[in-house]
Structure formats: C-alpha cells, structure tokens
Amino acid sequence: MLNWFHRLGSPKTFFEISGRWQVPLLSLAVLMLAGGAAWALLFVPPDYQQGNSVRIMYIHVPAAILAQSGYVMMAGAAAVFLIWRIKLADVAVKCVAPLGASITFLALVTGAIWGKPTWGTWWVWDARLTSTLVLFFLYIGVIALRSAMDRQAGVGRACAILALVGVVNLPVIKYSVDWWYSLHQPASFSLTEKPSMPIEMWLPLLVMVIAYYLFFFSVWMMRIRNEILVREKNTDWVKQWLAVR
C-alpha cells in the first residue's frame, strides 16, 4: 500500500498513469454533465413552491458541495506534502486552488441567480451563501500567498500550512455562520431543506454531483500534468515525451 503510494507519488508514474485516464475520465464527465443537465432541464417536474427555478438546483448544489470538499481535498494534499514531503502533493495543492476557487465562485453566482426568483433579491445573507463566501476568501488567501511567494523556497510548505489552518477553521466558521443566521433569521423559507425530495428530483441531482466530481478530478489531473511538465522539464523522460509530440 505504502509502496504503491510512493510509486504514484513519483511524477513520472503519475504522468504515465494519468495520461491513460484523462481522456476517458473527461469524456465521461462531460457526457454525464450534458445528460444530467438535459434531465434537469427537460424531465424534472417543476417544484410546487419554486416552479421551474428549481432547475438551477442541479448546477448549484453540486458546485456548493464540491467547493467545500475541494478545500478539504486541498488540505489533505497539503498534509501529505508536509508529512511525507511528496512533491506531487505540492503540485496537487497548487493546481487545485484556482480550480476550487472557480467552483466556489460558480456556487456563489448560481446561488445568487437562484435567489432572485426565489427570494426576490440577488443576495441574501443566508447561512449557506455566507459560509460559501468565506470559503471563497479562504481559497483566495491560498492563491494570493502562492502568487506573492512565487519562486521562494518555502512557498509549497507555506501554502500547505495555510490550507491546513483553513481546514481546521472551516467547521468553526460554518457553525458560527449557521448560528449567526439562526439568530438573525429573516422571514423566508429555506432553499434546500425540503421534507423529502421525490426520487425523480434527487436522482438527477446525484448524477450531477457525480459528474461534477469526475469533472473536477479530470481537470485537476490536467493541471497537475502541466505543472509536472514544467517542473521536470530537464529530466530525460520529459524530453523523450516531448520529442514525439
């Protein structure tokens, strides 16, 4: 197990394996995204309260889930880098930050667009939107630190420390914002806490969540492969790989 872990941790092995996986994975992700979107747009019944605007849920909720778990995955990679000093983990941390930030931004904006027909305003300081906004700031912090420390020796470790600090704070932030919202709760109904969603509504949601995850992993992989090419450009295997391009 640990042996396998270290073997995958070598940039060359990762590059070879991911080269075989990236096209099928991305194709499957795009196919599922298209299928899930068509399902959500064409076949899902309108909600009795929200009408057709409930169709936004199918692109918003997976983005919101992925925004959080993306940060947790970044922190996981950061921990691997700090403990085992596997350079690939640093590459992974570097590559996931802009990706996660873009997904978080997507969750924020689709949430705002969903809010307009549902609440009547673009933005409400709802608990979920607010903690997603703070999450976005956390991503921005990691990206800002990375770009400010560009080319300095400790940049990878510094960003890894920051990602870990952020992930420890994430539950505290989430609970405090939830609690803050319940304290100031205006008269409105909650978007996603339905008594129970009928299967014809949650099944396409499940498809979309899986599709978002697959998409996330395949794009992450693409970014990691690019970064490996840059960092290992003086090795023989990269030169050989380039020779046949």
Binding site: G141, G166, V172, I173
Partner: peptide
C-alpha cells in the same frame, strides 16, 4: 489571509 479566520 487572516480575515476569514476572524469570522467566528
């Protein structure tokens, strides 16, 4: 970097 940590 620090502002989001101050939210709670």
């Amino acid at each position: 970097l620090v502002m989001p940590l101050y939210v709670p």
